[in-house]
Amino acid sequence: MRAFVHNVLLAIFWMLVTESFTLANFLVGFAIGFLLLFLARSLFDPTSRRYFTLAWRLPWFVAKMLWEIVLSSLQVARAVLSPRMRIRPGIVAYPLEAQSDLEITLLANLITLTPGTLSLDVSSDRRVLYVHGMFVEDPKAVVESIRDNLEKAVLEVTR
């Protein structure tokens, strides 16, 4: 977190020095600042140093998330526009591996934004997440696809 603040400060400083307050110039300053901080990474304590591994993983995570949103919207579009709606809704229990609030929140949000699934509720003991699916051919397949595609990605970013 501290490394991120440093990075933003460096980007603002870059804008001040170059006297041009545009988005493109901010991004250039941010990239240069990141490079500088990366070269000086041994000066940070280990917890702040997580910023640098996260900086590689987070863009991937966000890109993947956006791609999933596009896919799911296209799937909804296909279901909505087909004259005979071929949907097979169902509510499935998903056994959670994620533990902390952040992990469960992220996973539940991602499940809602990904194709065909919508998270309804978490059990009070945080062991099970109930998911409403639009195309449930086989409950086991839904659980497996959530575990392989989403939970792994979430845990990679948070742990």
Binding site: I69, V76, V80, P89, T112, G116, L118
Partner: peptide, 17 residues
């Protein structure tokens, strides 16, 4: 869509995008 839960699929994904 036939019921509330399926309607929420439409608003939560397509409308967000």
């Amino acid at each position: 869509m036939p019921d509330l839960y399926n309607r929420m699929h439409a608003t939560s994904k397509a409308a967000t995008l």
